[in-house]
């Protein structure tokens, strides 16, 4: 693993970009890593575009600035797959998008030519597994396929710890199924 991994999440207020960024960080924390997870706050409201961030490192993190050159960009809302989503994302970087479209279409929309593009229809997966369009957890699963930042099992443990009491066993398991499905279905080009 690179010394410092930086992930930038793009979503809309209410889609769980903050939760996804934090769950990833917490699962890494449990695995003994050093972490940060933070949202970029504006006058946020449901539906407005927001960015959130996860930092994971084997060493203590003292950085307290924004992430300008992420290694991974995760676009939770398909409509946010535009040029601004790939700002600062280098050739070594990976762009992961929730979409029913092809990687080529995403490259056209974002202008991201050289790095890897990963696609998964996380909205459909969440509708199939959870019965609601909540693509944030499936996107976490897809990210772990693209970037083995933590073990899938560690993420499941985190999800159970966070969700069981709050939403019950059935919905927790549905979330886990969604993660598993996205992990299996994500395509990288």
């Amino acid at each position: 693993m690179k010394e410092l991994i930086e992930v930038r999440w793009h979503g809309r207020g209410g889609q769980g970009a903050k939760t996804a960024a934090q769950f990833l960080a917490e699962a890494a924390l449990d695995a003994g890593k050093f972490i940060q997870a933070f949202p970029e706050y504006g006058p946020e409201r449901a539906g407005a575009p927001i960015r959130t961030y996860t930092r994971i490192s084997a060493k203590p993190i003292t950085l307290h600035c924004g992430v300008s050159n992420p290694g991974y960009v995760v676009v939770i809302d398909p409509t946010l797959a535009t040029a601004s989503a790939v700002e600062g994302l280098g050739e070594e970087g990976v762009l992961l998008v929730n979409t029913s479209e092809s990687a080529e279409a995403i490259r056209r929309k974002t202008g991201f030519k050289k790095g890897k593009v990963a696609t998964v229809d996380a909205t459909q997966i969440s509708i199939d597994t959870l019965g609601a369009p909540m693509p944030n957890m499936p996107m976490l699963g897809a990210l772990l396929k693209v970037a083995p930042l933590v073990e899938l099992d560690a993420l499941y443990e985190k999800i159970k710890a966070k969700f069981l009491k709050k939403i019950g066993e059935e919905k927790t398991n549905a979330n886990i199924s969604g993660i598993k499905k996205a992990y299996e279905e994500v395509k990288v080009e």
């Binding site: 050093f34 972490i35 949202p39 706050y41």
Partner: peptide
């Protein structure tokens, strides 16, 4: 910067 950032 720290008040709303999750850290260990």
């Amino acid at each position: 910067i720290t008040s709303h950032a999750v850290e260990g």
